[in-house]
Design a protein around this nucleic acid. Structure first.
Lengths: 149, 149
DNA sequence: CGTATTATCTCGTCCAGCGAGATACTCGAT
DNA sequence: ATCGAGTATCTCGCTGGACGAGATAATACG
């Protein structure tokens, strides 16, 4: 039972990283009087905007695993705090497109920027083969986790 | 703004992995009628027991970021579900030692085992230098995230 | 046009977690 | 011994995030 191989140690380490990143997000949330879900929502919104996609209320809720009622109150909350704007879709006017406020983006970058920068620094110290290994491992784990049994 | 370096892509990938692992845990939680916090608690308890340490109510609450009231109701919930036992500390009888039930451990292993096994497989395909790179990167990120500004 | 479908919102409810304070035990000082 | 301070956990009342059911509004299709 004890003394597992070096592979298990790394798996354990990965889990520790996810825990630590979660706590980091929680600190951001608390500092800005937000809930974990709000932070997840902002991240999803920024991802979408970076990918040049519009994020509607429904899609956002689906990605976060909320039902429609929860999604509405989430957007209400974010809008009340000024982090987000509701814009009725012009093509399909049933839809509500959610746009992130510029200041919320800056807030997030100010908080997460240093950590991202540090990670980039770490990666620059490795050669292309090593980076490929890191990329391959992470990709594999992501796919394994995504295949929800 | 677009077309960032290969380093940023990996950072993005790491975040995607944490999201996916979070969703995986959430599936486990939902399937066993538990809340995310309950799963986090069980993991903390199993970690402690693997490390040969006793986990008290207070320490558990502190690790999860709950106050005493929340911790009590968490343990109530887990005990009601039979995942956990309360044992009064014999040395200091104010303390409540929380022990994980054997069946809860098996439940967790059955669910997370395959994913862990897959990750170990992935790692075995790399040579020692590549594994060192993966380990180093993850360690660096964990430390960077832990230094909460 | 009317019916089905889709997107979002409203209402009532439940329960995880919080703050405040009660209770139970330990330990050091008198 | 016993008193008081400190510590660990629990109880009570409440807030607010999220859910289920159903209402409302806009689109699509016959």
């Amino acid at each position: 039972m004890p003394s597992q191989g070096p592979e298990r140690e790394i798996v354990h380490l990965l889990r520790a990283v996810t825990v630590e990143l979660g706590l980091h997000s929680a600190r951001f949330a608390q500092r800005n009087a937000m809930h974990p879900t709000d932070v997840r929502a902002l991240i999803a919104l920024m991802d979408a905007s970076r990918a040049g996609e519009e994020m509607t209320a429904g899609r956002l809720g689906a990605e976060l695993g909320l039902n429609s009622a929860g999604t509405t109150s989430l957007i209400d909350r974010l809008e009340r705090a000024g982090h987000v704007r509701r814009v009725r879709g012009r093509e399909d006017r049933r839809k509500v497109v959610v746009e992130v406020d510029e200041r919320a983006v800056e807030l997030g970058q100010a908080f997460f920027g240093p950590l991202i920068g540090r990670a980039v620094e770490l990666l620059q110290a490795y050669d292309e083969g090593e980076r490929a290994a890191i990329r391959g491992f992470l990709t594999g784990v992501r796919e394994a986790a995504a295949e929800g049994t």
